[in-house]
Structure formats: structure tokens, C-alpha cells
Write a protein that binds this DNA or RNA. Structure first.
Lengths: 141, 141
DNA sequence: CTTGCTCCTCTAGTCACTAGAGGATGTATC
DNA sequence: GATACATCCTCTAGTGACTAGAGGAGCAAG
């Protein structure tokens, strides 16, 4: 039923040292140990790990995840906080998408413009050199 | 004509300690100094700084910028390398946009689904808990 | 019994900055 | 000329979220 840290890594997609790191910073509870001092993870911890991994993939910071996990542990509590975190995060994500889309246009411009000739004519360099050619003026991240 | 490090910071949008850091890692050449040992930047260095800033904003890593700067210094050389860097970066950016768009859908789903009730029914938590609800399977960054 | 894998702890490194200490210099005002 | 304050200098250490490596112990298969 319970698995080793390697098994947990395979089951969750989180690397072994990262699992230990999460334990160290208190994102994961201190796990059971075998007699030989090896970590043992129960299904519940694996779920927690997957939760963390998913949230990290979605770009939530560790501190936000800490809050989400604390919320998760109190299912009767109002989800106001989780909602707020998700909303804030959504805004951030939308800003990032806008910024990356501008960048994408610019990069496409660059590689289209590159005539595979000499550097002097290459838009990749030119575009980076002259911000005024850039698609996202006055934008900040 | 030449400006102090503070002036360079204002002109380029790169912070003073960051300029010194760039010098330290060899991204900027060692600048001239006044008699009182203060750095002096000529227009050329300011251009270089803006180039770096722009490239960093666009998400290029310092090592990539180092390469781009080296290329820029040899305008007669083929721009193959710059082209390759830009293409690679474009791919990365497109993956990131796709990933963030999926995330955006998911987060919108989350906050829409949130009935402002108990955590137990909150999609924000639920969605993070169950990767199968997630919009971007099998995607990797 | 040996080989090879996984596990343990611990420290240090990564990237791209950022912050702070402690001191020198430059500029503006009284 | 004195004083105040901004700006500059160097240097060290801290950040977030890991990642790598040293040095050693345990375990299962052949």
C-alpha cells in the first residue's frame, strides 16, 4: 500500500530530491519511516504530492500552495480565500499571456524577416536592438 | 555625452545594481571611469544595455543574450545562429502560451465554478486535486 | 558474497538578480 | 565654508525553487 520515495516520485511525477525538499520546507508532512529509516508514503500523501505538482505546473507559487493546502485541510471552511487566490492568479496569467503573445508576434516577425544572410540584415538582432519595432510598448510584467 | 551609472539606469530601464551585475558576469564591457572611480557609459553601452533589457524582457536567458551580443559584434557573420536561437525561443514561447491558455481556461472554470460555499465543493481545490479535470494532459514544459 | 540499485543526510551550486553594510564623492542650500 | 542629501563605490549575503554531488547504509538478485 505504502510506497518508497522513489515510488512516490514515479506516482506523482515529482522528483525524489524535490519531494525531500518539499518536506524540508514543510509543504509535505514528515512521513512515516521504515525500520531502515526510509520514507514511506501513503495514498493520501501521494494525492497531496499530485496536488502540489499540478498547482506548481499551473504556476502557483509555493506560498500560495501552502495556503491552498491549509484550506483543503478544512473542508467546512468557506472557500473565499481559495477563490481569491485563483482570481489573482488568473489575472497574472492573463497578463502573462498578453505579454507572451506580443513576444510571439515579435519573434515570428524576426524569423520571417531573417533572410538567412548576414547578421547585419537579420531582424532577430535588429528587433532586439530597437525597442520601437517591438509590439509591446509600455507594457510591463 | 557619457553618463553615470544612475543615468544609464534611467536611460535603459535596467537598475543600477543589475548594471553592475551585468558587468560582473561579463555581459557588459568594463566601462571607463572618472577620476573619482565612477563608471561612465557612452551611447554605445546604453544601446547594449537596452538590447539586453529587451532580450531579457522577451525571456531570453543571459547565455542566449551573450551569444546574440557576440553575433552582433560580427555583422559579417551568417545569422544562422541568431535565427536558430529565435526559432527555438519562438517554440518555447508558443508552448508556454498554449500551456497558459489551458491554465487560463482552467482557472476561469475554477472561479466560475466556485459557489462561494464550502471548500469541499470548491472547484479551485477540486480541480487542483484531480489532474484528470485538467485541460492540458500530457503536456510538458 | 558481490553487484548494483535505491535510499539516507548534508552541503553547496544554479539563475538572475536584490538587499544591505559601510564608506567616499558630488551637488545644492544656508 | 558647513551641512544635508543623493549618488556612487565595493563587498557579502539572501531570494525562490529547486538540482547536484559527496559519502555512506540497506536490500534484492544472481
Amino acid at each position: 500500500m505504502d510506497v518508497s520515495i522513489g515510488g512516490a516520485a514515479r506516482a506523482s511525477g515529482v522528483k525524489v530530491p524535490t519531494i525531500r525538499y518539499y518536506e524540508q520546507i514543510g509543504l509535505l508532512p514528515v512521513p512515516q519511516r521504515t525500520q531502515a529509516n526510509r520514507r514511506l508514503y501513503a495514498p493520501q500523501e501521494l494525492r497531496r504530492l499530485r496536488f502540489i505538482r499540478h498547482a506548481r505546473e499551473l504556476g502557483f507559487e509555493v506560498e500560495a500552495i501552502r495556503t491552498l493546502l491549509a484550506l483543503q485541510d478544512r473542508p467546512d471552511h468557506s472557500c473565499e480565500e481559495a477563490d481569491r487566490l485563483a482570481r489573482e492568479h488568473l489575472e497574472q496569467v492573463e497578463r502573462r499571456i498578453a505579454s507572451l503573445s506580443a513576444l510571439r508576434r515579435e519573434l515570428m516577425h524576426m524569423v520571417e524577416g531573417c533572410s538567412h544572410g548576414r547578421v547585419a540584415q537579420c531582424r532577430v538582432i535588429e528587433t532586439l536592438d530597437d525597442h520601437s519595432l517591438c509590439a509591446h510598448h509600455g507594457e510591463s510584467e
